[in-house]
């Protein structure tokens, strides 16, 4: 039986290690960035367009809005899956999330920082020591035909812009989807005899916490597609340049009507995320390969000249 020489095995191992180092950041980054893939032709405005099935989604966990009044304890949307495409003129984002019921007041929104100044994710509210900037909000609501292009810089300043640049189309389907979330269980610690164990210092019962990632099958999915030009003439809008990393945050409202007549989620009572990133894939630039090649030739030329010079002046 032929054996592979040690040096080839070592080279193969090295290649695998380098490959892993290369791939690892690419795998990990997809939890923080929505990659809007560059496509040819029109961007899809329909959530049912087949192209969405070819685009990788990035999933972002959602939290109940607890930052300011009026808060909410738990929300329907535990996460959102977001996909993006653009054609160098228009950009489209599809936000997908589980919601068991289709209600008129169901709504979703994307939020972006506008300009160079950092804005707080809660409607760009003022910060104590940092001069913040405004935010641009793309808002869709099920019972409203058109999307809203909005601006805010602090609580109570949310307004619809004079120039409306955003379109949205949504489809709710009664299909099954899997939702992953953190399941937390608290239990009193007990000894083998079944007696509650108490903290020897405080005398209080010791509580154990068990947290695990659980998966639940839910019927009902919203898919909302927002579209807009990458750049607009409106100074209140986010301007999306391919290759850059603008910040984005998400919000979702379950507009289900409760027995009390109130909506389950409305206004500030909603599911929210912190700031993440979008990245519109830049068009391919083949000139960088040419410049790399020129650099190789120049470096080899310099090397040649130096060696020649050294050989001529080599001390005996």
């Amino acid at each position: 039986m032929r054996t592979v020489p040690l040096r080839y095995r070592a080279a193969a191992l090295l290649a695998v290690a380098v490959g892993l180092l290369w791939v690892a950041p690419a795998l990990s980054q997809e939890t923080v960035v929505v990659r809007a893939k560059l496509i040819q032709g029109e961007v899809p405005t329909d959530p049912a367009a087949p192209i969405w099935n070819t685009i990788a989604a990035t999933e972002f966990p959602m939290s109940p809005q607890v930052h300011w009044q009026k808060r909410i304890g738990s929300v329907t949307a535990k996460s959102v899956k977001v996909r993006g495409v653009h054609n160098n003129k228009q950009i489209a984002f599809m936000v997908e999330y589980a919601d068991p019921t289709q209600d008129p007041a169901d709504a979703a929104a994307l939020e972006f920082m506008v300009g160079d100044k950092k804005a707080h994710f809660a409607h760009g509210q003022p910060m104590g020591q940092v001069e913040g900037g405004p935010v641009n909000i793309w808002y869709w609501r099920n019972d409203t035909p058109a999307a809203a292009d909005m601006s805010a810089q602090g609580f109570g300043t949310l307004k619809k812009q004079a120039q409306q640049d955003v379109q949205a189309k949504a489809v709710w389907k009664d299909e099954k989807t899997k939702v992953t979330f953190k399941e937390r269980k608290l239990s009193l610690r007990k000894d083998p005899k079944g007696e509650v164990v108490k903290d020897p210092q405080t005398g209080n019962p010791i509580v154990d916490e068990d947290t695990k990632v659980a998966e639940q099958e839910v019927s009902g999915v919203w898919r909302v597609v927002f579209t807009r030009a990458l750049t607009t003439t409106d100074k209140e809008d986010v301007q999306i340049q391919p290759g850059t990393f603008p910040n984005v945050a998400f919000a979702v409202w379950d507009g289900k009507k409760l027995e009390s007549g109130d909506l389950k989620e409305a206004g500030s009572q909603k599911a929210v995320s912190s700031w993440w990133y979008i990245n519109a894939e830049p068009p391919p630039d083949y000139s960088i390969y040419l410049y790399g090649l020129i650099a190789v030739v120049l470096a080899a030329g310099v090397e040649f000249v130096i060696i020649r010079k050294v050989k001529k002046g080599q001390p005996a």
Binding site: F245, D285, A295, V296, A299, E303
Partner: peptide
């Protein structure tokens, strides 16, 4: 060294010009 040096310079040039795929 003589082979790798020009390749390294070329790689650095490519790396400096290639679009950044990582968020800041």
């Amino acid at each position: 060294v003589l082979v790798l040096f020009p390749l390294l310079v070329g790689w650095q040039t490519y790396g400096g010009l290639a679009p950044n795929t990582q968020p800041p």
